[in-house]
Protein backbone atom coordinates (compact mmCIF):
# COMPACT_ATOMS: atom_id res chain seq x y z
CA UNK A 1 0.00 0.00 0.00
CA UNK A 2 1.35 3.41 -0.87
CA UNK A 3 1.81 6.07 1.74
CA UNK A 4 -0.21 9.17 0.96
CA UNK A 5 0.23 11.46 3.93
CA UNK A 6 3.12 11.53 6.34
CA UNK A 7 3.11 13.74 9.39
CA UNK A 8 6.26 14.08 11.46
CA UNK A 9 6.68 15.88 14.77
CA UNK A 10 3.81 18.21 14.01
CA UNK A 11 3.52 20.88 16.68
CA UNK A 12 1.24 23.84 17.27
CA UNK A 13 1.72 26.31 20.08
CA UNK A 14 -0.82 29.03 20.78
CA UNK A 15 0.34 32.10 22.69
CA UNK A 16 -1.64 32.76 25.85
CA UNK A 17 -2.62 36.20 27.02
CA UNK A 18 -2.53 36.63 30.73
CA UNK A 19 -3.51 40.04 31.95
CA UNK A 20 -2.64 42.77 29.49
CA UNK A 21 0.66 41.25 28.57
CA UNK A 22 1.57 38.44 26.30
CA UNK A 23 3.36 35.85 28.32
CA UNK A 24 6.00 33.55 26.97
CA UNK A 25 4.06 30.46 28.05
CA UNK A 26 2.04 29.00 25.23
CA UNK A 27 -0.50 26.23 25.02
CA UNK A 28 1.03 23.26 23.32
CA UNK A 29 -2.20 22.35 21.54
CA UNK A 30 -0.40 19.73 19.48
CA UNK A 31 3.01 18.49 20.51
CA UNK A 32 5.27 16.42 18.25
CA UNK A 33 2.56 14.33 16.65
CA UNK A 34 3.58 11.82 13.99
CA UNK A 35 1.44 9.49 11.91
CA UNK A 36 0.90 8.41 8.35
CA UNK A 37 -2.09 7.62 6.17
CA UNK A 38 -1.99 5.15 3.28
CA UNK A 39 -3.89 5.76 0.06
CA UNK A 40 -7.49 4.59 0.31
CA UNK A 41 -7.28 4.04 4.06
CA UNK A 42 -8.84 5.71 7.07
CA UNK A 43 -6.97 7.02 10.07
CA UNK A 44 -9.08 7.74 13.13
CA UNK A 45 -7.93 10.53 15.41
CA UNK A 46 -9.68 10.08 18.74
CA UNK A 47 -9.52 11.75 22.09
CA UNK A 48 -11.49 13.95 24.44
CA UNK A 49 -11.97 17.69 24.16
CA UNK A 50 -8.72 19.63 24.31
CA UNK A 51 -6.62 16.71 23.09
CA UNK A 52 -5.60 18.56 19.92
CA UNK A 53 -7.34 16.39 17.34
CA UNK A 54 -9.20 19.26 15.68
CA UNK A 55 -6.12 21.48 15.71
CA UNK A 56 -4.24 18.67 13.97
CA UNK A 57 -6.99 18.46 11.35
CA UNK A 58 -6.83 22.19 10.70
CA UNK A 59 -3.07 22.05 10.27
CA UNK A 60 -3.42 19.20 7.78
CA UNK A 61 -5.80 21.41 5.83
CA UNK A 62 -3.37 24.31 6.28
CA UNK A 63 -6.12 26.38 7.86
CA UNK A 64 -3.58 26.76 10.65
CA UNK A 65 0.13 27.21 10.19
CA UNK A 66 2.10 24.59 12.17
CA UNK A 67 4.64 25.90 14.67
CA UNK A 68 7.02 23.17 13.59
CA UNK A 69 7.10 19.71 12.08
CA UNK A 70 6.41 18.44 8.64
CA UNK A 71 3.35 17.42 6.65
CA UNK A 72 4.11 15.55 3.43
CA UNK A 73 1.62 14.58 0.76
CA UNK A 74 3.17 12.13 -1.70
CA UNK A 75 6.53 13.06 -0.26
CA UNK A 76 6.03 16.75 -0.97
CA UNK A 77 6.40 19.06 2.00
CA UNK A 78 3.29 21.19 2.37
CA UNK A 79 3.69 22.87 5.74
CA UNK A 80 5.73 25.63 4.07
CA UNK A 81 3.63 26.03 0.91
CA UNK A 82 2.86 29.56 -0.13
CA UNK A 83 -0.67 30.74 -0.81
CA UNK A 84 -0.43 30.18 -4.58
CA UNK A 85 0.74 26.60 -4.19
CA UNK A 86 -1.93 25.87 -1.62
CA UNK A 87 -4.64 25.91 -4.24
CA UNK A 88 -3.22 22.82 -5.87
CA UNK A 89 -2.87 21.16 -2.46
CA UNK A 90 -6.47 21.93 -1.55
CA UNK A 91 -7.58 20.26 -4.74
CA UNK A 92 -6.18 17.05 -3.35
CA UNK A 93 -7.15 17.50 0.29
CA UNK A 94 -10.67 18.51 1.30
CA UNK A 95 -12.55 18.84 4.55
CA UNK A 96 -15.97 17.90 5.96
CA UNK A 97 -17.02 19.81 9.06
CA UNK A 98 -18.91 18.86 12.20
CA UNK A 99 -21.78 21.27 12.02
CA UNK A 100 -23.42 21.03 8.62
CA UNK A 101 -25.69 23.98 9.36
CA UNK A 102 -22.99 26.53 10.05
CA UNK A 103 -20.61 25.29 7.37
CA UNK A 104 -23.12 26.04 4.61
CA UNK A 105 -23.99 29.57 3.54
CA UNK A 106 -27.72 29.96 4.28
CA UNK A 107 -28.21 32.25 1.26
CA UNK A 108 -26.50 29.98 -1.23
CA UNK A 109 -28.44 27.24 -2.96
CA UNK A 110 -27.22 23.73 -2.38
CA UNK A 111 -26.31 23.35 -6.05
CA UNK A 112 -24.10 26.41 -6.11
CA UNK A 113 -22.49 25.42 -2.80
CA UNK A 114 -21.40 22.16 -4.41
CA UNK A 115 -20.38 23.96 -7.60
CA UNK A 116 -18.21 26.49 -5.75
CA UNK A 117 -15.02 24.40 -5.57
CA UNK A 118 -15.39 23.43 -9.27
CA UNK A 119 -15.65 27.08 -10.26
CA UNK A 120 -12.85 28.18 -7.93
CA UNK A 121 -10.41 25.62 -9.28
CA UNK A 122 -11.56 26.05 -12.92
CA UNK A 123 -11.05 22.41 -13.78
CA UNK A 124 -14.51 21.72 -15.14
CA UNK A 125 -15.52 23.67 -18.25
CA UNK A 126 -18.23 26.19 -17.30
CA UNK A 127 -20.88 24.46 -19.33
CA UNK A 128 -20.24 21.17 -17.59
CA UNK A 129 -20.48 22.39 -14.01
CA UNK A 130 -24.20 21.84 -13.64
CA UNK A 131 -24.00 18.29 -14.91
CA UNK A 132 -21.01 17.62 -12.65
CA UNK A 133 -22.95 18.91 -9.63
CA UNK A 134 -25.96 16.73 -10.45
CA UNK A 135 -23.67 13.76 -10.70
CA UNK A 136 -22.16 14.56 -7.29
CA UNK A 137 -25.58 14.99 -5.75
CA UNK A 138 -26.60 11.64 -7.10
CA UNK A 139 -23.52 10.03 -5.59
CA UNK A 140 -24.28 11.32 -2.09
CA UNK A 141 -27.97 10.41 -2.30
CA UNK A 142 -29.51 13.83 -2.94
CA UNK A 143 -32.23 14.20 -5.54
CA UNK A 144 -31.64 16.35 -8.65
CA UNK A 145 -34.57 18.59 -7.69
CA UNK A 146 -32.65 19.56 -4.54
CA UNK A 147 -30.34 21.63 -6.75
CA UNK A 148 -32.02 24.99 -6.24
CA UNK A 149 -33.06 24.49 -2.63
CA UNK A 150 -31.48 26.25 0.32
CA UNK A 151 -29.80 24.67 3.35
CA UNK A 152 -32.65 25.48 5.77
CA UNK A 153 -34.96 23.20 3.77
CA UNK A 154 -32.75 20.22 4.60
CA UNK A 155 -32.43 17.96 7.61
CA UNK A 156 -29.08 17.65 9.40
CA UNK A 157 -28.25 14.42 7.59
CA UNK A 158 -29.02 15.91 4.18
CA UNK A 159 -26.92 18.97 4.94
CA UNK A 160 -24.02 16.73 5.81
CA UNK A 161 -24.52 15.00 2.45
CA UNK A 162 -24.20 18.40 0.80
CA UNK A 163 -20.97 18.99 2.72
CA UNK A 164 -19.66 15.63 1.54
CA UNK A 165 -20.63 16.33 -2.09
CA UNK A 166 -18.81 19.64 -1.90
CA UNK A 167 -15.70 17.92 -0.55
CA UNK A 168 -15.89 15.29 -3.29
CA UNK A 169 -16.27 17.80 -6.11
CA UNK A 170 -12.56 18.02 -6.86
CA UNK A 171 -11.89 14.28 -6.65
CA UNK A 172 -9.59 14.71 -3.67
CA UNK A 173 -7.22 11.99 -2.55
CA UNK A 174 -7.69 12.80 1.12
CA UNK A 175 -10.67 14.11 3.06
CA UNK A 176 -10.30 15.42 6.60
CA UNK A 177 -13.56 14.66 8.39
CA UNK A 178 -13.85 16.66 11.62
CA UNK A 179 -16.56 15.03 13.74
CA UNK A 180 -18.74 14.54 10.66
CA UNK A 181 -21.50 12.59 12.40
CA UNK A 182 -21.42 13.95 15.95
CA UNK A 183 -24.29 16.36 15.40
CA UNK A 184 -26.53 13.72 13.84
CA UNK A 185 -29.10 11.34 15.31
CA UNK A 186 -28.07 7.69 15.56
CA UNK A 187 -30.15 6.43 12.64
CA UNK A 188 -28.98 9.26 10.37
CA UNK A 189 -25.42 8.87 11.59
CA UNK A 190 -25.43 5.32 10.25
CA UNK A 191 -26.60 6.55 6.82
CA UNK A 192 -23.72 9.02 6.62
CA UNK A 193 -21.13 6.48 7.79
CA UNK A 194 -22.29 4.02 5.14
CA UNK A 195 -22.10 6.78 2.54
CA UNK A 196 -18.53 7.62 3.49
CA UNK A 197 -17.64 3.93 3.30
CA UNK A 198 -19.19 3.60 -0.17
CA UNK A 199 -17.29 6.64 -1.40
CA UNK A 200 -14.02 5.24 -0.18
CA UNK A 201 -14.70 1.91 -1.85
CA UNK A 202 -15.60 3.60 -5.15
CA UNK A 203 -12.98 6.34 -5.34
CA UNK A 204 -10.11 5.13 -3.18
CA UNK A 205 -10.10 8.36 -1.20
CA UNK A 206 -8.31 8.32 2.14
CA UNK A 207 -9.84 9.79 5.29
CA UNK A 208 -8.49 11.36 8.41
CA UNK A 209 -11.49 10.83 10.63
CA UNK A 210 -11.54 13.03 13.72
CA UNK A 211 -14.08 11.91 16.30
CA UNK A 212 -14.72 11.54 19.98
CA UNK A 213 -17.11 8.62 19.53
CA UNK A 214 -14.98 5.52 19.91
CA UNK A 215 -17.60 3.13 18.56
CA UNK A 216 -17.82 5.07 15.32
CA UNK A 217 -14.04 5.14 14.93
CA UNK A 218 -13.78 1.46 15.72
CA UNK A 219 -16.31 0.76 13.01
CA UNK A 220 -14.86 3.09 10.44
CA UNK A 221 -11.08 3.47 10.73
CA UNK A 222 -8.30 1.14 9.62
CA UNK A 223 -5.75 2.72 11.88
CA UNK A 224 -6.28 4.83 14.94
CA UNK A 225 -4.29 7.37 16.95
CA UNK A 226 -5.45 8.12 20.48
CA UNK A 227 -4.61 11.65 21.62
CA UNK A 228 -4.43 13.22 25.07
CA UNK A 229 -3.32 16.78 25.88
CA UNK A 230 -1.77 17.37 22.48
CA UNK A 231 0.13 14.08 22.21
CA UNK A 232 -0.48 10.71 20.70
CA UNK A 233 -0.76 8.12 23.45
CA UNK A 234 -1.27 5.05 21.33
CA UNK A 235 -1.19 4.47 17.63
CA UNK A 236 -1.83 1.32 15.65
CA UNK A 237 -4.18 -0.95 13.74
CA UNK A 238 -7.74 -0.22 14.89
CA UNK A 239 -8.53 -3.79 15.81
CA UNK A 240 -5.36 -4.15 17.83
CA UNK A 241 -5.82 -0.89 19.70
CA UNK A 242 -9.45 -1.58 20.54
CA UNK A 243 -9.16 -5.27 21.31
CA UNK A 244 -5.94 -5.14 23.27
CA UNK A 245 -5.33 -1.57 24.33
CA UNK A 246 -1.84 -1.25 25.78
CA UNK A 247 -1.69 2.36 26.94
CA UNK A 248 -3.40 2.99 30.31
CA UNK A 249 -5.24 5.99 28.84
CA UNK A 250 -6.63 3.96 25.95
CA UNK A 251 -7.70 1.30 28.44
CA UNK A 252 -9.48 3.88 30.59
CA UNK A 253 -11.08 5.56 27.59
CA UNK A 254 -12.48 2.31 26.22
CA UNK A 255 -13.63 1.26 29.64
CA UNK A 256 -15.59 4.49 30.05
CA UNK A 257 -17.71 4.00 26.93
CA UNK A 258 -21.24 2.99 27.96
CA UNK A 259 -21.99 -0.46 26.62
CA UNK A 260 -25.33 -0.92 24.93
CA UNK A 261 -25.72 -4.28 26.61
CA UNK A 262 -27.22 -4.48 30.07
CA UNK A 263 -25.75 -7.95 30.51
CA UNK A 264 -22.16 -6.90 29.79
CA UNK A 265 -19.53 -7.57 32.40
CA UNK A 266 -18.87 -4.27 34.16
CA UNK A 267 -16.60 -5.56 36.89
CA UNK A 268 -13.23 -4.60 35.42
CA UNK A 269 -14.12 -0.97 34.84
CA UNK A 270 -11.42 1.64 35.00
CA UNK A 271 -12.49 5.06 36.21
CA UNK A 272 -10.18 7.98 35.71
CA UNK A 273 -10.29 10.43 38.57
CA UNK A 274 -9.79 14.15 38.51
CA UNK A 275 -9.95 16.60 35.66
CA UNK A 276 -7.92 17.17 32.57
CA UNK A 277 -4.86 19.24 33.59
CA UNK A 278 -4.69 22.77 32.24
CA UNK A 279 -3.08 22.73 28.80
CA UNK A 280 -1.07 25.82 29.77
CA UNK A 281 0.57 23.84 32.54
CA UNK A 282 0.62 20.15 31.60
CA UNK A 283 2.42 17.62 33.81
CA UNK A 284 6.11 17.19 33.07
CA UNK A 285 7.29 14.00 31.45
CA UNK A 286 4.27 11.84 30.61
CA UNK A 287 1.29 14.21 30.30
CA UNK A 288 -1.08 11.47 31.41
CA UNK A 289 0.71 10.70 34.65
CA UNK A 290 -1.48 12.94 36.86
CA UNK A 291 -4.55 10.81 36.13
CA UNK A 292 -2.89 7.51 35.33
CA UNK A 293 -4.61 4.58 37.04
CA UNK A 294 -1.28 2.79 37.38
CA UNK A 295 0.16 5.61 39.46
CA UNK A 296 -0.71 4.27 42.91
CA UNK A 297 1.05 1.01 42.12
CA UNK A 298 4.30 2.54 40.92
CA UNK A 299 7.60 2.13 42.65
CA UNK A 300 9.45 5.42 43.23
CA UNK A 301 11.93 4.75 40.47
CA UNK A 302 9.26 4.28 37.83
CA UNK A 303 7.32 7.30 39.09
CA UNK A 304 10.41 9.41 38.71
CA UNK A 305 10.84 8.16 35.17
CA UNK A 306 7.26 9.16 34.31
CA UNK A 307 7.80 12.61 35.78
CA UNK A 308 11.11 13.23 34.08
CA UNK A 309 11.01 11.87 30.61
CA UNK A 310 8.48 12.07 27.81
CA UNK A 311 7.57 8.59 26.62
CA UNK A 312 7.69 8.02 22.87
CA UNK A 313 6.85 5.32 20.36
CA UNK A 314 3.56 3.97 19.15
CA UNK A 315 2.56 3.28 22.74
CA UNK A 316 3.72 6.33 24.61
CA UNK A 317 4.00 4.81 28.06
CA UNK A 318 7.02 4.01 30.21
CA UNK A 319 5.33 0.92 31.60
CA UNK A 320 4.97 -0.48 28.19
CA UNK A 321 8.50 0.28 26.97
CA UNK A 322 10.00 -1.16 30.11
CA UNK A 323 7.93 -4.28 29.76
CA UNK A 324 5.37 -3.97 32.51
Amino acid sequence: MTQLLEVTDLTKHFPVRSGAFRSGVGVKAVDRVSFSVDAGQTLGLVGESGCGKSTTGRMLMRLLQPTSGSIRLDGREISELRRSDLQEYRRQVQMVFQNPSSSLNPRQSVGSAIAAPLLAQRITPRGGVKAAVRDLMDRVGLRPDHYNRFPHEFSGGQKQRVGIARALALNPRLIICDEPVSALDVSVQAQVINLLEDIQRDTGVAYVFIAHDLSVVKHFAHRVAVMYLGRIMEHGETREVFDTPRHPYTQALLSAVPKADPAADRSGRIRLTGDLPSPTDPPSGCVFRSRCQLRPRLDPERAALCADSVPGGTIACHHHTTGM
Binding site: V188, A190, H219, F242, K259
Partner: peptide, 15 residues
Protein backbone atom coordinates in the same frame (compact mmCIF):
# COMPACT_ATOMS: atom_id res chain seq x y z
CA UNK B 1 -27.81 1.47 13.27
CA UNK B 2 -25.49 1.85 16.25
CA UNK B 3 -21.86 1.00 15.69
CA UNK B 4 -20.59 -0.99 18.64
CA UNK B 5 -17.25 -1.32 20.36
CA UNK B 6 -17.56 -5.09 20.39
CA UNK B 7 -19.02 -5.43 16.91
CA UNK B 8 -17.21 -7.01 14.02
CA UNK B 9 -17.31 -3.96 11.77
CA UNK B 10 -20.10 -5.32 9.58
CA UNK B 11 -22.04 -2.75 7.60
CA UNK B 12 -24.43 -0.63 9.65
CA UNK B 13 -28.12 -0.90 8.89
CA UNK B 14 -29.55 2.60 9.11
CA UNK B 15 -33.26 3.32 9.29
Amino acid sequence: SMPSLTGTGERLRPI
